[in-house]
């Protein structure tokens, strides 16, 4: 039991470090493609952490959307446009302040929820669907309408280009 916990914490720490290193590479990389690949690695790491917390379903879709789709689009854009990242003036003080602020917000969030109180739970997708349909039908309707609108817009844009 103890060994399992040690392994779990070890894996969690290793994945977290991997995410931090990948994130650093994503920011520091000179080429957009390397940055995109590192972003993909960050996404995979985060999916790993989500899976370790017991939400495999969310982890799978995290990989599909944030790694599969998002990184494909970034690499696709880089390949099409051959665009290099713009140079920004370093604003270290502001960045440090921002990081501190963000850390404070995270700490507050963690303190308010309480570490260790939330264990992994079994996610019954049928139950989730039932709750969404019964209790959140209006937001669901808005999502459907928005998606349908985007799809129609997409079709109009595509047909416009055909002409």
């Amino acid at each position: 039991m103890f060994l399992n916990e040690v392994l779990e914490v070890g894996a969690f720490t290793a994945i977290s470090l991997y995410i931090l290193v990948s994130a650093l590479i994503a920011i520091k990389a000179k080429d957009s493609i390397y940055a995109a690949a590192a972003l993909g690695m960050v996404g995979l790491g985060i999916a790993g952490l989500i899976a370790m917390l017991g939400y495999g379903y969310v982890a799978a879709f995290h990989v599909v959307i944030y790694v599969g789709a998002a990184v494909t689009f970034v690499t696709f854009s880089v390949l099409m446009l051959r665009e290099q990242p713009a140079e920004f003036k370093e604003i270290k003080v502001l960045a440090a302040l921002n990081a501190l602020l963000l850390a404070g917000v995270y700490l507050l969030a963690i303190r308010s929820t309480g570490i260790g109180e939330l264990g992994s739970v079994y996610l019954n997708l049928g139950e989730v669907a039932r709750v969404i349909i019964e209790q959140y039908w209006f937001p669901l309707l808005i999502v459907f309408v928005s998606l349908a609108t985007i799809m129609i817009e997409g079709i109009i844009v595509a047909r416009g280009e055909e002409k």
Partner: peptide, 14 residues
């Protein structure tokens, strides 16, 4: 895993 189908498709999508 309980979600092997989306996982297989997700990794294939990379």
């Amino acid at each position: 895993v309980e979600y092997s189908l989306p996982l297989v498709l997700a990794i294939s999508a990379l």
